[in-house]
Amino acid sequence: MALKIIVCAKQVPDTNEVKIDPVKNTLIRDGVPSILNHDDANALEEALRIKDLYKDTHITVLTMGPPQAKDMLIECLAMGADEAILASDRALGGSDTWATSNALAAAIRKIGEFDIIFAGRQAIDGDTAQVGPQIAEKLDIPQVTYVTEFEIVDKDIIVKRALEDGYEKIKIGMPCMLTAIKELNEPRYMHIGGIYEATKKEIPVWGAAALGVDLTEVGLESSPTNVFRSFSPAAKGKGIMLEGDCDKDVAKALLIRLKEKHAI
């Protein structure tokens, strides 16, 4: 089976490494590394596993971002992807999910035929989980999100999709969009030979003109949503000390507070 797979990935700042300055209540970004978004690594890994099984599989990794996103694409190539493409242009900057999906769908049309698009469920900087489904909509293909298990059966795909209280087993044909979560697999490391090969590969950079997107469909000005205000969450003040006549009363008082806050 010669499958064509496209993996959508994003380079993100490692938000777990971000600290808040306790005095100024601002972000400390110093030394925060840029990484391949976690869920996207799972998306790529699943594509690579298909390639392990069907050697003729061709994997293209696609990203949109600033020029330095190339570093992440090299990492993807070193993990075993065949090809990588960077959509990058000032005109694409500030795109919301609607505009981002327009640009990425245009890039996918330019890549040509495909059987499966894998994407991560969401990126850790925006946490929207919207771009995958919106690309699928623009390309008019079916989707399954939150995929935790993947299997090809005859000409169809059978996946497990996580729900809050269980899971669904879903059959979906190709071409389709699947979004991966951590439970899907354990991403592999780059291999040494792969790193060497990867740095030799050319990574095409496609601007808005190359993508053939209309400037009313991409970028900050065209995006339906925009940021009105942004701020740091309020610094935590000292909390409330709970007291009571006996331990039981204190425990009850705490539970009432938790219920009041909808925490439980």
């Binding site: 971000v18 900087d125 949503t225 009105f228 942004s230 740091s232 969450p233």
Partner: peptide
């Protein structure tokens, strides 16, 4: 005015959809 955590909960943003 739609307010949400972003950036791993490190900042809050208020989003509009004006048009």
């Amino acid at each position: 005015k739609q307010t949400r955590p972003a950036f791993g909960g490190n900042i809050m943003a208020t989003i509009l959809c004006p048009k």
